[in-house]
């Protein structure tokens, strides 16, 4: 079974993000980068599936040469091949989905697994666009019934279950108020939620092997995709700083304040 996954380069969630002076972007100096944590979960799920249903795991990333770092990370975890879409400049979610669509048409995977969203812009749209444009079924927010402390998780049992003959996948989705089960006909698109799995750490032998795994270059032009953004960023601003709370001496004062100042009771 061939699986395609994404490996987007995002700002490390531990970094402090500041809006730049022009108010159109963020200050990039001194920032650290990582693979999008949801994509890392996608890579992990693909590797677990590949261990049961052997086949290639292809990792895709879009950006300048710096995204090699995230592709190598996916390869070090165990992906077999990387595709680098060499692109500088802004991209919107439709541009990303169009590029991925072309890569999917070339690679012909049985399953595409992506993070449900990336932690930079948190748009949560690419998987949905991609499935729609490919004409494939989709299951977003893939999760599982087992907890992340379960034996199954320790034994790296996949949460996404492939049906007999590899014609379908069963996905448990995390939705408001509970879990929702879907069966998709393959090929299909799955996007990952946080509780699907705990990604493995890249091992040292994995890191060494990653250096000699294939990394193929593509460009938007070569793929014949117009990626001119339909969305422009007009302004970025920091959320207002939270005001410090106050301590009240007793319940009576609290109730009074809630009535007279906060006006919520």
């Amino acid at each position: 079974m061939k699986i395609l996954v994404t490996a987007k380069r995002v700002e490390d969630p531990e970094s402090k993000i500041k809006v730049d002076a022009a108010g159109k972007g963020i200050v990039k100096d001194g920032l650290k980068y990582k693979i999008n944590p949801f994509d890392e979960i996608a890579v992990e799920e693909a590797l677990r599936l590949a261990a049961k249903h052997p086949g290639d795991v292809v990792a895709v990333s879009i950006g300048g040469k710096e995204v090699h770092e995230q592709l190598r990370h996916a390869l070090a975890m165990g992906a077999t091949k990387a595709v680098w879409v060499n692109h500088e400049g802004p991209l919107d979610q439709m541009g990303v989905a169009r590029l991925l669509q072309k890569i999917v048409e070339k690679e012909k995977p049985d399953l595409v697994i992506l993070g449900k969203q990336s932690i930079d812009d948190d748009q949560n749209q690419v998987g949905q666009y991609l499935a729609e444009w490919l004409g494939w079924g989709q299951a977003t927010f893939a999760s599982k019934a087992d907890s992340l402390d379960s034996e199954n998780e320790k034994n790296k049992v996949p949460g996404v279950i492939v049906g007999d003959g590899a014609k379908t996948v069963d996905v448990i989705r995390e939705v408001d108020g509970g879990l929702n089960r879907l069966r998709l006909t393959l090929p299909a698109v799955v996007t990952t939620d946080l509780r699907l799995n705990q990604p493995r750490y890249a091992s040292l032998p994995g890191i060494m092997k990653a250096k000699s795994k294939p990394l193929e270059e593509q460009t938007a032009q070569g793929l014949g995709v117009d990626v001119a953004p339909k969305i422009t960023v007009t302004k970025l601003s920091m959320p207002p700083a939270r005001k410090a709370g106050i301590k009240v001496p007793d319940v009576a004062t609290l109730v009074t304040k809630l009535k007279t100042e906060a006006k919520v009771v």
């Binding site: 990582k34 990370h73 070090a76 750490y201 890249a202 040292l204 890191i207 060494m208 990653a210 250096k211």
Partner: peptide, 15 residues
């Protein structure tokens, strides 16, 4: 070198 930086970040995540 890149492979040692990858090793560094993998150990950091683990720790």
């Amino acid at each position: 070198p890149d492979d040692l930086r990858a090793l560094q970040s993998s150990i950091r995540d683990f720790c």
